[in-house]
Amino acid sequence: MNDTPPEVEERYRAMLLQRTGEERLIMGCTMRDTARAMVEASLREQDPNATVKTIRKGVFLRFYGHEFDGETRAKILAAIESAAHRS
């Protein structure tokens, strides 16, 4: 769905392109950090006693889980589980 008028989209794009590459990178990193914080908060709301391992697995599944087949997803989750035991 796109309900933004084309002239507004063009103006927004022009404003973004006026920023330096560094500023755009910082914006992107900030947006990613905000998205991760929102996902973590959602996971903690669902399970207030969630462990770091549970949060890491949940973040992976929300952001990337759909990009892998079941077998690969299971291997990645097992690696997250294993890494949690080592730290």
Rank of each mutant, 00 (worst) to 15 (best):
K53Q: 08
S42W: 09
L77F: 04
G70P: 05
R56E: 10
F60K: 03
A83H: 06
R32T: 14
N2G: 12
R32M: 10
E9N: 07
M1N: 11
E45H: 15
D69R: 02
P6D: 13
T20D: 13
F68L: 09
D33P: 01
Y64C: 06
A84H: 01
V52G: 08
E10W: 04
E23M: 05
L77R: 02
R11Y: 10
F63D: 01
Q18D: 15
H85I: 09
D69Q: 00
S42K: 12
E45N: 07
D69T: 02
M38I: 10
R24H: 12
I80G: 00
E45C: 13
N49C: 10
H66D: 09
A79I: 00
G21H: 08
L17T: 08
M1Y: 08
G65R: 04
E81A: 14
A14T: 14
A74K: 04
R11Q: 14
P6Q: 07
L43T: 00
P5Y: 06
P48V: 06
T20K: 02
I76S: 04
A78N: 04
E40H: 05
N2Y: 12
F60S: 03
I76Y: 04
H85A: 14
I55D: 04
R32W: 09
V52R: 05
D69G: 11
D47A: 13
Q46F: 08
T34E: 13
D69H: 04
T20L: 04
A74L: 05
M38W: 11
L43E: 05
V39Q: 02
S82N: 15
G28M: 10
N49E: 15
N2H: 07
A35W: 07
A83R: 04
S42A: 13
I76Q: 05
M15I: 09
K53W: 02
P5Q: 06
A78V: 04
P6R: 02
A79K: 12
G70K: 08
T20G: 04
L17M: 15
L77P: 06
F68P: 03
N49M: 13
Q46D: 15
T54C: 02
D33E: 10
N2W: 08
G21N: 12
R24N: 14
